[in-house]
Design a protein around this nucleic acid. Structure first.
Lengths: 207, 207
DNA sequence: TGCGTTTTAGATCGATCGATATAAAACCCG
DNA sequence: CGGGTTTTATATCGATCGATCTAAAACGCA
């Protein structure tokens, strides 16, 4: 009984992600959303509640399919050190390929939404803590298999990696330059090096 | 000749900074601005042009009085290594004292405004380059006086510090926790350490 | 003390905002 | 092949958006 929905919820949610991702929460209007999602405003409100609730669904879906998928793809499939390097290689590649400078929806939201909305603040803080925990598990694994230095506690190295991650994501939106992003990452990776004093040939850096 | 202005332009600009800083560019209305600046909308448009132009003035003023003042205060007054440490100590202190999580207007704007406005993108990219250059000068000075390791090129260390700076500013808006921010900075400072393998007592870290 | 000029104040412009009311359309079930 | 139910489509709600218009007010200068 009842009329069936004329839209695929997953497809519609992906369209909503694109809207919020490229324009931000405030700058995205319900009309933008309904146009891109291929449904009228009434259907949108009926299916997702209000704009804020839809944003919540979109953000959760984004986190699962971006960070979640990335973490699942690398962790346990690669030793800790290699998982970290693969993670960052992908972040830099994605950031440089992001021609319209959308950045990362999670991190954009950490600045635009979190400070004015306690519920989203908690949600976003939780995801950032998950990213930190991902790095920590990788570092701990690497320290155990000898591929990562133990001179710094895993907690701090994980936080440094989180910071560099955020830094890359932010800087890429204003200065999407490969040298810059890689130069930011390079010392952080060098810090993971287990051998005494950074065993790094400084020969292959761009000017 | 002509009626004199009833407002102090500097005071009005500071009020505009407060608006854009706490609510962001889009979410700040011209009515918010005119109320906080103590002048009518007509006076605002007469004196500053439109909302976007006012934002430009506010951002420029903010950069001068925050990063500019901080750099001037520490550089040349402290040896390179100490300038870096003082800079970050202040960034963390400011971030933790920021009870309404406004963060840094420049970095907020790098995410909200820069990607959608080429002119501001160039302006903001330029300021971020200035911050990077500040770190580079400090690192170079520290490498020269022996207080900073030369195992990593100054360019890369400067970029790492820029990344950690951005990371602290972003993370503080969602998770303003001292342990977290200091834990993010600690390995970066350890990396500056000149002596062989990180000469660091791991005794004084939080739980 | 008028004149010219600029800034004030207040009203208001059309456009758009998020959200909703109304009712026609599309389905399952009996 | 009509009920019952949900989703559609359209129109529109009051509020607010950035921006502007019209005058009155406040000055320096003649």
């Amino acid at each position: 009984m009842a009329r069936p929905r004329a839209f695929d919820e997953t497809v519609a949610l992906d369209a909503a992600i694109q809207c919020f991702w490229s324009r931000g929460y405030e700058a995205t209007s319900v009309r933008d959303l309904s146009a891109r999602m291929g449904m009228t405003g009434a259907s949108l409100y009926n299916a997702f509640g209000d704009k804020r609730a839809l944003f919540g669904r979109a953000l959760a879906s984004y986190v699962t399919s971006s960070f979640g998928a990335r973490a699942r793809r690398f962790e346990h499939r690669l030793p800790g050190r290699a998982a970290i390097e693969a993670f960052f290689a992908e972040i830099i590649a994605v950031s440089l390929a992001d021609s319209d400078r959308k950045g990362c929806l999670l991190i954009n939201s950490a600045l635009e939404v979190a400070p004015h909305d306690d519920e989203f603040q908690r949600l976003i803080a939780g995801v950032l803590a998950e990213i930190e925990a991902f790095f920590r598990r990788c570092v701990t694994a690497g320290q155990k298999d000898g591929s990562i230095s133990t001179a710094q506690p895993a907690d701090d190295l994980a936080r440094l990696l989180l910071g560099v991650h955020l830094g890359i994501r932010v800087l890429a939106r204003a200065r999407p330059e490969r040298d810059l992003l890689e130069g930011m990452l390079r010392p952080a990776l060098a810090m993971l090096e287990p051998a005494g004093q950074f065993t790094r040939d400084a020969s292959h850096r761009g000017e």
